[in-house]
């Protein structure tokens, strides 16, 4: 990661060194648990619990092979499902939330404040409230056991967090730009599509990354709506690994697959993290 976007700071060498000590210690504490999981993924099952702090004796990929095919379908299927759902959710969220946010940030209409309050109110809903009525609804639509209940709501902008984030960002874009466009005869659609969206890459990227990560990690939705194991997403498959009612447990394989499941989100995060920071930046501070 380059440091080119950082503000110039007056840094004495000593301070710099101290900071690295603090950061290094914090970083170690942060990732120790993950390191443990990663190392455990190379150990045979018996050793994971009986001797939890030992280092693995070899770095064979047995647990990875075993884990990939431990369930009836291989993880190829689960990853594919997860990607389909996550990518479509990202597209849905970006389109629907930005449309909504544009209306709240830039358009004048009757009841704007009221709808905005309603939108913010949905943030507070505990999701178990709507679980059963929503299930019944999707069942009536004939959507259960498909990805539709996981995707369609995103195209209808149910994630108020992203709307809020975008509203804040849009408000930060100087009004002079769209006022000039109106003078040139641009309608709201063109302003949204040709001016706002191109200027909003950071917040769009932020929303994209968060919605990718959250959809990818979501467990309750897939649990409720997916029936057939062929349609399982990665977190649902991971849950199937261990069961307390007895039977063989595959902890080594579980850790192997859990470690692996982190890779896609981590890559996405690494690739776009600089955009995230700018995406949040302008909005929240409103300058």
């Amino acid at each position: 990661m380059s440091s080119g976007d950082l503000p110039a700071t007056i840094n004495s060498g000593k301070n710099e060194f101290l900071r690295h000590i603090v950061l290094g210690a914090a970083a170690l504490a942060m990732i120790y648990p993950l390191l443990w999981m990663f190392l455990s993924s190379f150990k045979p099952d018996e050793l994971i619990f009986s001797d939890p702090t030992s280092l693995p004796t070899s770095f064979g990929l047995d647990n990875y092979y075993k884990g990939w095919t431990a369930l009836r379908e291989s993880f190829t299927t689960f990853y594919l499902n997860s990607f389909i759902v996550s990518v479509l959710a990202v597209i849905g969220n970006l389109l629907a939330c930005s449309l909504t946010a544009f209306a709240f940030a830039r358009l004048e209409f009757w009841g704007r404040k009221f709808w905005f309050a309603m939108m913010m109110g949905t943030l507070m809903l505990p999701y178990h409230v709507t679980l059963v009525p929503q299930y019944v609804l999707f069942l009536k639509f004939g959507w259960v056991n498909s990805f539709l209940p996981l995707i369609v709501p995103k195209f209808l902008a149910v994630d108020a967090f992203f709307i809020f984030l975008m509203v804040q960002f849009f408000r930060g874009i100087p009004r002079e730009i769209d006022e000039a466009a109106i003078m040139d005869g641009c309608g709201p659609w063109r302003i949204y599509w040709k001016i706002m969206l191109p200027l909003s890459t950071p917040v769009l990227a932020t929303a994209a990354i968060f919605s990718f990560i959250w959809t990818y990690d979501d467990f309750l939705g897939p649990l409720i709506y997916l029936n057939d194991i062929k349609t399982y997403t990665v977190p649902l498959a991971l849950r199937a690994f261990v069961d307390s009612s007895g039977g063989e447990s595959l902890y080594g394989a579980l850790f192997a697959m859990s470690a692996l499941s982190l890779v896609p989100v981590f890559i996405v995060f690494l690739a776009f993290q600089r955009l995230i920071i700018r995406g949040v930046a302008l909005g929240a501070l409103k300058r």
Partner: peptide
């Protein structure tokens, strides 16, 4: 035959939801 399998901890919530929707396997 469609096969649906869950861990014990998730099974009963899943089944109850399906029952509420008249959609039990």
């Amino acid at each position: 035959v469609g096969a649906e399998s869950y861990a014990w901890g998730d099974y009963w919530a899943k089944l109850a939801t399906q029952a509420a929707g008249q959609n039990l396997p």
